[in-house]
Amino acid sequence: MASASRPVSMKVVSVAETQKDESFFEKNERLGRKLSPHLTIYQPQLTSMLSICHRGTGLALGVGVWGLGLGALISSHDISHYVTMVEGLQLSGATLTALKFIIAYPAGYHTANGIRHLLWDTGRFLKIKEVYSTGYAMVATSFVLSAILALL
């Protein structure tokens, strides 16, 4: 009720007076606001690195599936032709196993971390100590899983 007795006045302002010609950065500089250094001061942590790698392996798997699919559509040969080409390179067993590990690792990592995320969705392992211990366990599991796939 006190605000009803207060006099109110209105002033007509043109649109040109309300628009500023300064940019976001110029305004922040004029007001003395500093730009946050964000990534330049951020210390990488296990959780952030595992998250970035999860996204990267998912991207690699998606690109790989698209590449294989498109390659199969536009290729004039079947898979046996390409197997013969790889055999013709006469690579050593260690080299072939290493190449297979490199190809298998995104699948092993993404699968192991996906299971970890599914466990989180049930409300388990969400305390910071558990997040770190499951992170280390997931990295070890992904190496083991990828090694098994590479040795097949």
Score class of each variant (00 low, 15 high):
R116C: 01
R30N: 05
G56C: 07
A150G: 09
Y42T: 02
S146L: 05
L118R: 13
H117G: 04
I148R: 11
A140C: 14
K127E: 14
T84I: 00
I128L: 14
G32S: 02
F101D: 07
S36L: 05
S92W: 03
G71F: 13
G69E: 02
M1S: 12
Q90I: 00
E87L: 07
A147F: 15
L70T: 07
E17K: 09
Q43G: 02
I79H: 12
V15T: 11
S9G: 01
R30E: 11
A147H: 12
Y105P: 02
R116T: 03
A140Q: 06
M1Q: 10
I148T: 13
E87T: 06
F101G: 06
L39G: 03
A107Y: 10
K27C: 01
S80M: 07
A60C: 03
L91V: 06
S76V: 03
P106S: 09
D21R: 10
G56W: 08
I148M: 14
I103N: 10
A72Q: 06
L126R: 15
S133W: 13
A107D: 01
S133L: 14
M49L: 15
Y82K: 08
L96M: 15
K11L: 12
S75N: 09
G58S: 08
Y132W: 12
D21A: 10
G135P: 03
K11N: 09
G62H: 05
L31S: 09
R116W: 00
V63G: 05
M85N: 07
A140G: 14
K100N: 13
S3P: 00
I148D: 10
S92A: 02
F24L: 11
V8H: 11
L118E: 08
N28C: 14
L145F: 15
R33G: 04
L149V: 15
W120M: 05
P37N: 03
L119R: 08
P7H: 08
G64V: 00
L39I: 05
M138R: 06
H117E: 03
M49G: 00
H38K: 09
L91R: 14
I103W: 10
S51Q: 07
H54M: 01
V8K: 11
R33K: 10
A140R: 08
G69R: 06
H38P: 00
N113Y: 11
E26W: 00
C53T: 10
I128Q: 15
V139W: 12
K34L: 07
S92D: 12
G114H: 04
R116L: 02
Q45R: 14
L70C: 02
G93K: 13
R33Q: 05
V83H: 12
I128A: 14
R6P: 00
V144K: 13
L31Q: 12
D78R: 10
G114A: 05
A4L: 11
A98D: 05
S92V: 00
A107C: 09
L70K: 12
A16W: 06
T47I: 01
D21V: 02
V12C: 09
H110K: 05
E130Y: 05
L96A: 07
L151K: 15
